[in-house]
């Protein structure tokens, strides 16, 4: 088991955003987390990355208790996140964004990882000298994913990678996610686009107001009546 989250809670001031989350992710799995706006999906990812403090429970990664570790130590252990809204370093060049992705490795392996990222998203190579803030939304998403990959993560956390993108770009992003999974990266995918996420996921969790309410295989959730009604709009 690569990641095990047990009874995890988190608060924003007095408001409890996570009300005891239990979930596990095995090595090489692609696990999807679906849920409505405000269910706590982003909070869960932030708590796993350590940028939002846990108020209770624990997070085990690779058999180490990382609940109290600062975010930079978690990145060094192999947890990379592509945050919601992409969060690229806008005024800096595409290439600098990518180089900073390898910061946790002290810049080691930058050259070969740059090549891999450019092979996956050729547009980034064309724009490598351009400020990241001038890229289109889809290109910024590709940059954010590539930046996370520069750290050569063991576990990749993806927060709403399809948000605000044109359908053709959504396809391209999901193709890239499938490619990463095929290459052996463990992926935890958070999506509002439940159909696309569950279609490529091995397993899925459904989150509602800070609690996991359903857990099953990806294809099983796709045909689950409750999921269909609430998240797939069928």
């Amino acid at each position: 088991m690569l990641l095990a989250v047990e009874a995890l809670t988190s608060h924003y001031g007095r408001i409890q955003a996570l009300k005891g989350i239990d979930l596990t992710i095995d090595r090489g799995e692609l696990v999807a987390l679906v849920g409505a706006n405000g269910a706590g999906k982003t909070t869960l990812l932030r708590t796993i990355s350590g940028v939002q403090p846990a108020s209770g429970g624990k997070i085990m990664f690779d058999d180490h208790n990382i609940t109290a570790n600062p975010p930079d130590s978690r990145v060094r252990m192999g947890i990379s996140q592509v945050p919601e809204g992409r969060q690229v370093f806008g005024p800096m060049s595409v290439e600098d964004n990518l180089r900073l992705g390898a910061f946790s490795r002290g810049g080691a392996g930058t050259a070969e990882m740059l090549e891999k990222c450019f092979a996956m998203f050729p547009v980034l190579e064309e724009r490598r000298k351009q400020p990241a803030g001038t890229l289109s939304g889809g290109q910024q998403q590709m940059l954010a994913m590539s930046r996370a990959l520069m750290a050569q993560p063991v576990l990749l956390l993806l927060d709403e990678p399809s948000m605000g993108l044109a359908p053709i770009l959504v396809d391209e992003i999901f193709a890239a996610i499938a490619e990463l999974k095929a290459a052996g990266t463990t992926i935890f995918l958070v999506e509002q686009n439940a159909f696309a996420a569950l279609s490529i996921a091995d397993r899925g969790y459904v989150l509602e107001t800070g609690k996991i309410v359903l857990a099953d295989k990806g294809e099983a959730l796709l045909v689950n009546e409750k999921v269909k009604e609430a998240y797939l709009g069928i």
């Binding site: 975010p71 990379s80 910061f103």
Partner: peptide
């Protein structure tokens, strides 16, 4: 230098800086 760029990156976006493993403290 990577450290200098990391300082600029922290100025531009602290959350993203933390997520690439920069110790913002």
């Amino acid at each position: 230098t990577l450290m200098g760029k990391a300082m600029l990156a922290t100025a531009h976006n602290r959350l993203a800086a933390q997520l690439v493993g920069i110790n913002t403290r």
